[in-house]
Nucleic acid binder design. Sequence first.
DNA 1: AATATTAATCGTAATATTGCAATTAAACAA
DNA 2: TTGTTTAATTGCAATATTACGATTAATATT
Lengths: 102, 102
Amino acid sequence: MYTDRQKEIALFAKVFGHPARVAILQQLFEIDACYCGDLSEEIGLAQPTISQHLKELKTLGLIKGTVEGTKVCYCIDSENWAKMKKVMHQFLNQDIPKADCC
Amino acid sequence: MYTDRQKEIALFAKVFGHPARVAILQQLFEIDACYCGDLSEEIGLAQPTISQHLKELKTLGLIKGTVEGTKVCYCIDSENWAKMKKVMHQFLNQDIPKADCC
DNA sequence: AATATTAATCGTAATATTGCAATTAAACAA
DNA sequence: TTGTTTAATTGCAATATTACGATTAATATT
């Protein structure tokens, strides 16, 4: 029904389609690392909710988490982030050099 | 709860978060114009479903439609597309020059 | 071992999204 | 005017998403 590329774009976009996940990613970029509890406080959602959003980001490979004692340190997976960027940029930039027709 | 920017990013991303809308946009870019019925055939969804997806894209301002007789010609709103691109690029490119921490 | 800390998982309610058949609306054609 | 064509709207069922309290799991601390 859809091409693999179309499905890939939609999957990446979907994960950015909730402000909580946008906020999580911005936070991870800003401080280079974070713990689930910190994110919960910072963003204002309950811990299980944040954990669920983190899981979705992790499933797509955009973040990774390493256990540090009782905490888990999350950070951006820059390699996969770069791959995602390529896909999304290609989609966003397909307008060149076309223009409106109507 | 979230910043306006975070909400804006999420709204744009959300509309790209379904392969049907990705396919519609790609089609509009490819042929510079399209009619609702053509899209329905091309993509393989019922006409009301396509119409609904078009409405969402239109609500965000990414496409515009002009009535041409009994048909409606849809095309990309390149001005708003460019604005959207700026917002999304800024979000996607926030990783420079940071790297993984864990 | 017993307690404390932190994140993940489970269960579930509320809400949102998706898809389509049926219908309506609007413009054209005869 | 009457029919034809095309898109929008309505109504609804199926599914997915979101959020969180309660619980569990894992590790650290005493």
